[in-house]
Write a protein that binds this DNA or RNA. Structure first.
Lengths: 194, 194
DNA sequence: CCAACCATGTAAGCTGTTACATGATTGA
DNA sequence: TCAATCATGTAACAGCTTACATGGTTGG
């Protein structure tokens, strides 16, 4: 047993946390069970979150989802397909429902926009509106943060161009506030028509 | 020599390309020669690009700059300081002068804003204006790209919420266009006053 | 003398990417 | 039969981050 340490006998790879790419895959699989190859083709032909369609991205993420018990690998009509499990559905629902934070708005707008796109045709239409409301509130909070920073000790004494750079972040955040309000209105109108 | 392969005798780490963090360090060192610790403190007390002040970020980047011959490690009054070399100055000047592309605007605004902040008090004031003009043009090009995409085959047939997500990118880009124009005006006015 | 600061480093992880390799199936 | 498509995988890298470790110096 010389030279053996605790990791030597562990051959079961750990389940790492599900990433945004993982949730995108989960959503696609729930919408239509398909193979890894099929999923890659989806990423190839649509601008889904800007993720790469290369195997090095997709397959490791699928392995991880499977290890986490969120998807299953079956064979239908001789073709391999991934299907979502009960746990997978629960996890996806939970992720889609997480409230938006000011930090999200400041640093992960790309992920938020992907979540918004995945909420398309959601079983519970109110959830999309709740998402936009949450985002609207978080963006306003983030705008307050940035304004407070600029008015404060540190922000106010920065060189002009550093201040202008922060001001750009503020303008972008305000754009987010406006967009969330407009998207909310657009969806509510579409809803009323039904 | 059994078991030996070509990598066994290579102990000189390769010089990897200089990253945006590297250029930020280079700029700070040029402004004032100082130790790695001193640089960390700068990242600690200012929001420089949102980089971490942790040693795991700074020291490897400094090593790389040194390997590339862009900085030197000296000792002044018994204290260690990094100083910029002639090559370092050339590399920094070149990086600060690179034209802005539409892709930069779409995906690396954080880096562009850091560059803008580093142009503060530049030896050549016209360069800052040129940067903003370049950014303005690139942002307009990017806005055209997004509008063309939405009007086109693929974009037009996407689900509503995916379209709204792209539209968010468009609004953000338009904000960039406006900001660049306003910053340009602000800096020209400040220049005229002198 | 010892807490606080100065100074530098490594290991592991995160969340992907590009590039390469491999084989099965299938329709023309 | 052979090119195209279907299907899955690994290795290496990118550009950081967090967490941990390690010592020297210095002022009170």
């Amino acid at each position: 047993m010389a030279g053996m340490n605790s990791t030597d006998r562990i051959n079961v790879p750990a389940v790492t946390p599900i990433t945004s790419l993982g949730y995108a895959l989960l959503w696609l699989i729930r919408a239509r069970p398909q193979s890894g190859y099929g999923l890659r083709m989806v990423f190839d032909t649509t601008p889904l979150g800007n993720y790469s369609s290369s195997p090095g991205s997709i397959y490791p993420a699928l392995k991880n989802l499977q290890r986490a018990g969120l998807i299953d690998n079956r064979r239908e009509d001789g073709r391999p397909v991934f299907v979502i499990t009960g746990n997978g559905d629960v996890a996806l629902e939970a992720w889609l429902s997480v409230p938006v934070t000011a930090d999200d708005v400041g640093r992960r707008m790309d992920v938020l926009m992907m979540r918004f796109a995945l909420l398309q045709d959601d079983a519970n239409p109110a959830r999309t509106l709740a998402f936009l409301e949450s985002m609207h509130g978080a963006a306003m909070a983030q705008a307050d943060n940035l304004e407070a920073f600029l008015a404060g000790e540190v922000g106010g004494s920065m060189p002009l161009q550093a201040q202008l750079a922060v001001r750009y972040g503020l303008e972008t955040t305000k754009t987010t506030v406006r967009w969330a309000a407009e998207a909310h209105k657009a969806l509510k109108q579409g809803e009323a028509k039904t």
